[in-house]
Design a protein around this nucleic acid. Structure first.
Lengths: 334, 334
DNA sequence: CTGAAAGCGCTAACAG
DNA sequence: CTGTTAGCGCTTTCAG
């Protein structure tokens, strides 16, 4: 264990400088020497220490930090796969950390990432990120891309789904089915996605000539359990259709409906946010807005590398289109 | 940007040695001095460089590598969450990499991880890992835990689900429903989980006095598309029940069945491996073996820290129990 | 309680 | 084509 470059140099009968250069291919070395060095590397069992290397070279660590809440992201794999792929292409690695949707935990995580000298950070900001995390990130000068939850932050690149129009589109669709009492199980307060989706709901109601009744909007905390309780509350207010603002809440709503003996879409129509592989196999097949997580992950890493390349370009916010997958839970015929 | 410890020392009017010690709390420093140093840190905007620190201290980087195929792991979040949590408790971070279920990619990844001086590695070995990756890992002397796919490797700690008995249990259950022509859509060849589940299938058939007909076993490549084709093939052989050996293949089988106009469990009963949040909401509610991914992730990180603490303890292989969730796709009444 | 100085393992002028 | 050597930013004896 722990063979150093000098050991290799010794057994190859050359200088460390030469060893370094054959390892990094950073200057021409006589083939015979290269040969000897490579043999020495093998015989000694040498492992290059990229950390010492990075330190000496004064560069980053060929790694980027990805900070999000895996717990609240069922699309983790979709999101992470393109990021990982792009990073691998550059010989970089991904440091994945969990924000726990909590400002303090997130702050600690970003600090840890910064102290480890990552080359860039991709962050799905928790509610509360604006207080400490974002300022710190901004002053760090590190390339950063904010993901999913678009903030009111001028000095960051951001990418996420368009939420307003797709949500309004759900309302349009439900209204076309003749629904007027359309309930919304809203996401966790403080999340920009929650706000935007509620805005979309309001826009949709209005443009269909429907009144927005406050009692038809209940927060479902972005989680299944809370959403079930929210649905219970809503049910007493006699909605004819319900929109869970995300995937987890759809599970909760569906569970509550089922145990209450209600059948979708006969007793209440349902269409929500977040599509997934099994949607078509659910009973009834789910009508839902599909977010393009692969594209979001792809754009995030693209934007990050763009910024690394040109630190002074203007900051951009990109919205990735999300589209309504119409199936039967909304009342459409099979 | 890039303030060094010496800068802090200068503006605080002390030596770097003192600064280092107040930062690490590694020796007693007069309160007043601590004060001055902390102020200097603030004023200069100093960030501790953990990499340089680790180098000087000759220790690891407070990070562990996690290598698996996110693409083929729908439980990524369940698995990763306990690992992340434990790591955070130790002030460590997770370097997540993708093996792509490919020996060469995996080998490169593990190399990258090793070169970055991670303190340990958790790997879900791809088929082919035994050729290069495992030997390298073994000779590295680094703490390693193999996950999910239990290998025939004596010198590694391993943790994964029990596959044989649970699979045999599925067969038992189906046999009790009176099925005799039970088909298996097997997983990707070369994966130990595939092998073990097929073994479980054979064991189940045998102990129920059923003949194992080779034509009722078709490989579904562990993926939805291939599984659909496998199911098509199988259908011509008139099974009365089918067992997809994992989650993805269940999707494929279900899709094919549906588009063929077949209804489960009337036309063919179905029970497979891998349960998940939506199983009860599928049409029909899915009977499936639930693997305890959270426990697996938890044990993996436990075993890793155990080995870090005592490098010479004997290697262990742990099996986490997986249990059959009986719903309706097997033919049981709602 | 504090400082000087010798490394940690590697890179990159600079000088052959 | 190759070797010497001064760092990279930090830790840690050792000597006050």
């Amino acid at each position: 264990m722990n063979v150093r470059m000098s050991d290799v140099a010794k057994t190859a009968g050359v200088s460390v400088s030469t060893v370094s250069h054959v390892i990094n291919g950073t200057r021409v070395v006589e083939p015979a020497t290269v040969q000897r060095v490579n043999e020495a590397i093998h015989r000694t069992g040498y492992r290059h220490n990229r950390l010492a290397s990075a330190l000496a070279r004064g560069v980053g660590t060929q790694s980027v930090g990805v900070a999000l809440s895996a717990q609240s992201n069922p699309y983790l794999a979709d999101l992470v796969t393109p990021i990982e792929a792009a990073l691998t292409r550059h010989g970089s690695l991904m440091l994945l950390g969990e924000t726990h949707e909590d400002a303090a935990a997130e702050y600690r995580l970003i600090n840890a990432l910064l102290d480890r000298r990552v080359d860039g950070i991709i962050l799905a900001p928790s509610p509360g990120a604006a207080d400490q995390t974002l300022p710190m990130l901004a002053s760090s000068g590190l390339p950063v891309v904010l993901l999913d939850r678009i903030m009111d932050a001028e000095h960051f690149d951001q990418v996420g789904s368009d939420n307003v129009e797709p949500m309004a589109g759900i309302v349009d669709h439900l209204a076309q089915h003749g629904h007027t009492r359309i309930a919304l199980v809203a996401g966790m307060a403080g999340l920009s996605t929650s706000v935007e989706r509620e805005e979309g709901y309001r826009r949709g109601m209005r443009r269909n000539g429907l009144e927005v009744e406050p009692e038809l909007i209940v927060e479902g905390g972005s989680a299944a359990g809370e959403a079930a309780r929210a649905m219970e509350q809503l049910w007493s207010r006699r909605p004819t259709a319900v929109i869970p603002a995300n995937n987890y809440m759809t599970v909760g709503v569906l569970r509550w409906l089922r145990q209450a003996g209600l059948v979708v879409p006969r007793d209440v129509a349902l269409a929500g946010f977040d599509d997934f592989e099994w949607s078509a196999l659910i009973d009834p097949p789910l009508t839902a807005v599909a977010q393009n997580w692969t594209a979001i992950g792809q754009r995030a890493i693209d934007m990050l590398t763009d910024r690394m390349a040109s630190p002074d370009r203007p900051f951009r916010t990109e919205r990735i289109v999300a589209s309504l997958m119409v199936r039967q839970s909304c009342g459409c015929p099979g």
